[in-house]
Nucleic acid binder design. Structure first.
Lengths: 342, 342
DNA sequence: GTGAAAGCGCTAACAA
DNA sequence: TTGTTAGCGCTTTCAC
């Protein structure tokens, strides 16, 4: 391995100068710069990032903690995060916590402040208290898509308006003439996706729908989970003409359930999701959904972490990115004319 | 940040002893161990992995280079890789190269041998020569799922028998009575998936099918790519009763194409994929496919890299993991009785 | 069984 | 403009 010292020797300068050429070339006489650059090239020198990190007191890696990258939302998110990090000269450590607090904790203990100087924490089972404690060790912690009723006051947080997302879904269904609503609420880590549901329910109320026109059921946040929950829901309430799922995976499961029960989507029943993962438009019928700007959230989170690392305190506490928007595709349509009773 | 020195001071020993307690506790008197452990606990000490890496000359991170994590094969792979790495006390840097040799190269230059002491390279546009050069800098490079006609002789390589996988698909279709075959060949990075196709074609020949009973078409390796290619293929060769795609994404696209052309799967046409990503069983109809043991390949690759780092040279050059196996689901069925001409 | 000391490769004052 | 000098926090001989 070629070291800075060898480059220095070859260029007949000291290490400090080589270091300067690399970091503040304007502070070095042009011809020295040339000489050093030549030496670097000839020797094939590459700075050792580990040594640099130790000397500077901060690394060039960021950690991204998520529950399980196998959920199709994350790959899209990770890609965007990684691109932003790379653009800013950083690398991304991906940490799957499997929703296991012990794994999460172990990761944080080992990595935070030693391997990574910043951590983006998504959907976690750890308490805010515990996370705050990590942050107090001097490492940049940013909460991402924190979906609790109370936004965090202690940790900077990048998120979107989940209630508005739910409301968009409600307005869409309502405007199509639906009157009997089903909702599948996913329970990811970090608790159930209640805010999405509340936004949905409030908007329904605002449009004059009675409380009892909405049937809610919990589901695991996956295609299979949505399928099972929808089967149950549709059996219990055969009069439903539409289903809102707090995310796309469950919505896709619901479409399959409808098909298996002999209901056509969207003729007999409309299904709307939330997130707009790629699968949403790849599935047939293509899923109508409310789009969450994942890439933007990812990039913002990385940027925020880096700003904290560089500048100290974040300028504000909560960063809300661009609003969610409705994406109408093939899975929703006008409510069928009444034929059966609820 | 609590350092080793502070722990040492508190435990009234030197740093060397603390270091030993952490690494070779049997070399330290039990009561000293206790004292040091107590100090560690009281102070909340966490070793700094960056400093450790610098001192030991090797880091605890591995890099995984893949083209784009958004391809659903990778998340499953990454999860398995990360678990294996974690089990062995390492962390995983995920690098999306976007199939761009420049990005790949930049990553390798920056990371290899400084941030990561091992790199798993999947599907890449870099030449073997270039990769060998990186490896010669003393960093562990393992090729993963290298799918070239010539296996690499220079770099250790974890792979599976792609030809056998293709053959399984052919045998399955042949045994169902099909006689007119279509094939979609994906062209990922690292060139087209020729070996899978060759395995398919050879098996067909071995079962007595004439060369011209197989129509091959290239496709982009995605649902959309498979869709477009299949539309073209089915228009050109309306007599096809089955389609083999060199991977699942294209197979799913092909199923959608068939549906859009008014063909029922599997009644009018059978579709078989290769890989068995999660989507394969989640889609309707569920996709018959040939399963590649992704998790096993991932784990083996990580393990191999670590062995090389620890032990120097790998014991052998090519590691072939468990054979692919046929997974029969709903997208394949008996060939329809002849109705039309080719 | 424990300590002293040298160093991993780089950065960052501060001097010159 | 360049060099000197201390480290960063940890590991690792080698004495004691």
């Amino acid at each position: 391995m070629v070291t800075l010292a060898e480059v220095a020797r070859r260029a007949k300068v000291t290490g400090a100068t080589v270091s300067n050429v690399l970091r503040n070339p304007q502070k070095v006489k042009p011809e020295t710069v040339d000489r050093v650059m030549a030496a670097i090239r000839e020797l094939g020198y590459r700075p050792n990032l580990t040594a640099r990190a130790l000397a500077r007191g901060r690394t060039s890696t960021l950690a991204l903690m998520l529950s399980n990258i196998t959920n199709p939302f994350y790959p899209e998110f990770v890609l965007a995060a990684e691109r932003e990090a790379r653009k800013r000269g950083h690398f991304l450590l991906v940490c799957n916590t499997d929703d296991d607090p012990a794994i999460t904790r172990a990761y944080l203990e080992q990595i935070a402040g030693s391997l990574a100087s910043g951590v983006i924490v998504m959907n976690t089972d750890l308490s805010e208290r515990e996370l705050t404690e990590i942050a107090s060790r001097g490492i940049a912690v940013v909460l991402c898509m924190w979906e609790h009723v109370q936004p965090s006051r202690a940790l900077p947080c990048v998120t979107i308006d989940f209630a508005a997302a739910g409301a968009l879904a409600a307005e869409h269904l309502s405007s199509l003439g639906h009157r009997k609503f089903g909702a599948l609420v996913g329970a990811g880590s970090g608790g159930p996706q209640t805010i999405r549901l509340e936004g949905f329910a409030s908007a329904l109320a605002a449009h004059g729908h009675a409380d009892k026109s909405l049937a809610v059921v919990q589901a695991r946040d996956s295609i299979e989970g949505g399928y099972e929950a929808a089967i149950g829901l549709l059996r219990d309430k055969p009069g439903l003409t539409c289903i809102f799922a707090t995310n796309d995976l469950m919505a896709i499961g619901a479409m399959q359930a409808a098909a298996d029960l002999g209901k056509r989507v969207p003729d007999d029943i409309s299904v709307i999701g939330l997130t707009d993962i790629e699968l949403a438009h790849q599935f047939r019928p293509a899923l109508t959904t409310v789009r969450l700007p994942a890439a933007e959230i990812a990039a913002r989170s990385i940027a925020l972490a880096l700003e904290m690392i560089e500048g100290g305190e974040p300028a504000q506490d909560i960063y809300v990115v661009r609003s969610p928007e409705l994406v109408v595709r093939a899975s929703t349509g006008r409510a069928p004319s009444r034929r059966r009773r609820t």
